[in-house]
C-alpha cells in the first residue's frame, strides 16, 4: 500500500512543482491535439452542414460510412497513414513520419467522422423555421450559413470539444506515427505507456492525473454546452 501512496504523493509533487519534463509532455500533447482539432473542425463543420441540409442520392450511404468510421480503431488509422508517409509511401518524400505533423494527420482522420457526425445531428435537429425565417428576413446564402452557425454554436462547440478530448486521450495514432520522441512527439499517453514500462510509475501517474483532469474539464464543458443549457430551460 505504501508503494501506491508514495507514488501518488510523488506524482502530485511533480504536478505542483511544475516538473519541466511533465510540462514538456503536456505542452507537446496540447499543441498537437489543438492543431488536429482545429484542422478537423474546419473540414467537419461545412461537411456536416452539407450532409444535414442537402438532399443528394448518396446521402444514406455517406451517413452509414460516417457512422462506421466513428468506431474505427486508432491503430487502423495509424497503419493507413503510416503507409502514406513512410519512406516507401505516396507522401514518403515529405519526411512526415515520426513528426508532429504525422500525428496531426492521423488524428485529423480520427476525429473528422466524430465531429462531423455530432454536428450533423445538431444541424439536423434544428427547427426548420430557422431557415424559413432567415429567408423571409432577406438573408443571403452566406448570411443564412452564419445564422445557422450562430444558432447551433453550443452544439458545434460541444462537438469540437468532444473531438479534442478524443485526440488528447488516444495512443495508437501517436505511437505509430509519432514514434514517442522526447520533446518532439512524446504525448501524454505515449509518455505514460513508456514511463510505466521503465518503472517510473509516479511520473506516469502524474501524467495520468493531468489527463484525467483535462478529460473531466472537457466533459464538464461539453455537458454544460450540450445538455446543461437545455436542462436549465426545462
Amino acid at each position: 500500500m505504501d508503494y501506491y501512496t508514495d507514488a501518488i504523493i510523488r506524482a502530485l509533487q511533480l504536478i505542483i512543482n511544475l516538473d519541466p519534463e511533465v510540462i514538456q509532455v503536456v505542452t507537446t500533447s496540447l499543441k498537437i491535439s489543438i492543431s488536429s482539432t482545429l484542422i478537423a473542425s474546419i473540414i467537419s463543420i461545412p461537411l456536416a452542414i452539407l450532409i444535414a441540409r442537402n438532399k443528394f442520392k448518396s446521402k444514406k450511404f455517406i451517413n452509414i460510412i460516417l457512422n462506421t468510421l466513428l468506431s474505427l480503431p486508432t491503430v487502423v488509422i495509424g497503419i493507413f497513414v503510416y503507409s502514406l508517409i513512410s519512406r516507401r509511401g505516396v507522401l514518403g518524400e515529405l519526411d512526415l513520419l515520426f513528426t508532429p505533423i504525422g500525428i496531426i494527420m492521423g488524428q485529423v482522420i480520427l476525429i473528422i467522422p466524430l465531429i462531423t457526425a455530432l454536428i450533423r445531428n445538431v444541424i439536423f435537429s434544428m427547427d426548420e423555421k430557422l431557415y424559413k425565417t432567415a429567408t423571409s428576413m432577406g438573408a443571403s446564402r452566406s448570411q443564412k450559413f452564419k445564422l445557422l452557425i450562430l444558432e447551433a454554436r453550443y452544439g458545434i462547440i460541444g462537438a469540437v470539444i468532444a473531438g479534442f478530448g478524443r485526440v488528447l486521450g488516444e495512443i495508437g495514432v501517436s505511437m505509430m506515427l509519432g514514434g514517442n520522441i522526447k520533446g518532439v512527439t512524446r504525448t501524454i499517453t505515449t509518455a505514460m505507456s513508456l514511463e510505466t514500462n521503465k518503472g517510473r510509475f509516479a511520473f506516469a501517474l502524474a501524467l495520468g492525473i493531468i489527463l484525467l483532469s483535462l478529460s473531466f474539464l472537457i466533459n464538464f464543458v461539453t455537458y454544460f454546452l450540450q445538455e446543461g443549457k437545455n436542462y436549465a430551460r426545462r
Binding site: D127, K129, L130, K132, T133, T135, S136, M137, G138, L147, L150, E151, R153
Partner: peptide, 16 residues
C-alpha cells in the same frame, strides 16, 4: 426582391 418582402409566421422563430 426578397428584401422587399416580409413574413409574420403563425409560430414565429426567434433567434438566440
Amino acid at each position: 426582391l426578397r428584401r422587399k418582402l416580409s413574413v409574420i409566421w403563425q409560430d414565429p422563430y426567434l433567434y438566440r
